[in-house]
Amino acid sequence: MTFFRALGAEFQKLLTTRMWWLLAILLAAYVAFMAGGLGALFSWLAANPDAAAPSGGTPLPADVELAPLLYSFASSIGYVFPLLLGALAVTSEFRHKTLTPTFLADPHRTVVLSAKLVSQFIAGAVLGVIGYAVSVGSAAAALSGFGLETGLDSSDTWALIGRGILAMALWGGIGVGLGVLVTNQVAAVVIVIAFTQFLEPILRFAASLNDVTAAVGRYLPGAASDALVGASFYTVASFGGTEALDWWQGGLVLLAIALATTAIGGATTWRRDVS
């Protein structure tokens, strides 16, 4: 009972400031640009292989299916948005010192944090729905414009979309875990940007150079996320031949990261004196 009150309050907190739709708009614009823009480019390349060759472009591997690759941009590049939203949901309480009214209204801190985690799973899924609506919409338009397969009549495509939305939900939870571990808002945002945009891509590349590190690199959150979704431009630009995780293993890795970081933060920073 008290959990659902806390969950309701968390949703109200989320919906009564501008952050969620700001991030939703950025996500939609970014995904539309990447999925639609690259979709148009790749479609043109695929439809005019002769015209493309003299321009010096590397031809796409023949066995790559274009549609799932383009659709998965929603999560393979868009996962930073639920991650940010989740982290901000926690750090803004510290930054604006709203933990005082929050803990006065509900002194059960574990309940409050659990409600935050669940609310951000759901918010992440909503961002996932928005991201996939945009990526599928723009990429399918580009593909069909060049007379290529959209794959929308295939259940595999829809399963990929479903797994992609699940990945976005889990990223929202990881955001909560990160936020409660790194309560300083600026630091949390810097970590999100630095890790997702620079550090992890470099780590994944470096790990792929050697079979032993590649086996470990599969467990990096971005790699696990791509494994869960089942398609990503990383797998196309595949460095090395190590098998990715199974989709369900990838999902469990993300879930474990979300739960572990939230639990550690909940036992440390979340229990501290509020002053």
Partner: peptide, 18 residues
């Protein structure tokens, strides 16, 4: 101290719900 981007009404609604 309040979240600067939230209105007074919404601030109170959040905690009434909680």
């Amino acid at each position: 101290n309040f979240h600067p981007g939230r209105t007074a009404r919404n601030h109170l609604r959040v905690y009434a719900t909680a």
